[in-house]
Simulated assay, not measured.
Amino acid sequence: MKATWRWFGPSDPVTLADARQAGAAGIVSSLHHIPDGEAWSEDEVQRHAETIGAAGFRWDVVESIPVSNEIKVRGPYRRRHIDNYKTSIASVGAAGIGVVCYNFIPVIDWARTDLRYPLPSGLALRFDLADFAACDLFLLKRKNAAAAYDAAMLAEAERRFRAMSPERRAALEATVLAPLPGGTVAYSSQEFATTFARYEEINEDDYRETLLEFLREVVPVAEEHGVRLCIHPDDPPINLFGLPRIAGSIAQLRRIVSGVRSPSNGVTFCVGSLGVRSENDLPAMVRELGPDIHFAHLRNVTRESDTVFHEAEHLGGSSDMAAVVFALRREELRRKIEGRRDDQIPFRPDHGHLMLDDVAKADTRPGYSAIGRLKGLAELRGVISGFDLAVEQGLRV
Rank of each mutant, 00 (worst) to 15 (best):
P233A: 10
P220V: 03
S278E: 15
A145F: 14
A54I: 03
L139I: 10
Y207M: 05
F161V: 09
S189L: 05
A22N: 11
L328K: 01
F387P: 02
E332P: 03
P10D: 12
Q393W: 12
M355E: 05
S318F: 05
E42L: 00
V383R: 06
E311M: 02
L212K: 03
R287T: 00
E38S: 07
A251D: 15
G367S: 10
R6K: 15
A90Y: 06
A323D: 10
K86T: 07
I71H: 04
H297P: 03
G9D: 07
Y85W: 13
A370N: 11
V308N: 03
D36H: 11
A55T: 07
N69T: 15
L356C: 06
D358K: 04
T210Y: 10
R330P: 00
V221C: 13
R335H: 02
V359D: 06
P346R: 07
G372F: 08
V391L: 14
K86A: 14
G182E: 09
A39T: 01
H351L: 03
L229E: 07
A360K: 08
I202G: 01
P349I: 12
R228D: 13
E313Q: 01
H351D: 08
I105Q: 13
D357N: 14
V359M: 11
A157N: 08
A147L: 12
Q21F: 04
D128Y: 02
H33I: 03
K361A: 11
A111M: 15
I231S: 15
S369K: 03
V325E: 03
F8T: 09
I71Q: 06
E338T: 11
V324A: 08
R216M: 00
D350Q: 04
D206G: 15
A157T: 07
R160I: 15
L282W: 03
K336S: 12
E191V: 05
G98S: 14
A25H: 05
V92N: 07
A39E: 01
A327P: 04
D150V: 09
T175Q: 11
L154W: 14
E331D: 10
P179W: 03
P283Y: 04
L31K: 12
E217L: 09
D281N: 13
P10R: 06
L229F: 08
H353A: 11
T268W: 09
R58C: 05
E217G: 04
S258F: 05
A151H: 10
P179I: 01
R373T: 05
P244V: 06
S319A: 08
E288C: 00
F347N: 02
A130G: 14
V107Y: 05
F161P: 09
R142E: 11
K141Y: 08
V62S: 13
L212P: 02
I89P: 08
E167A: 15
N265M: 14
A94P: 02
P13N: 08
T302R: 00
F269E: 02
I65K: 12
A19K: 01
R287A: 13
L123D: 06
V383F: 02
P346E: 07
Y187R: 07
H32M: 07
F347A: 07
V257G: 00
M321H: 08
H310V: 01
F326K: 00
P220C: 02
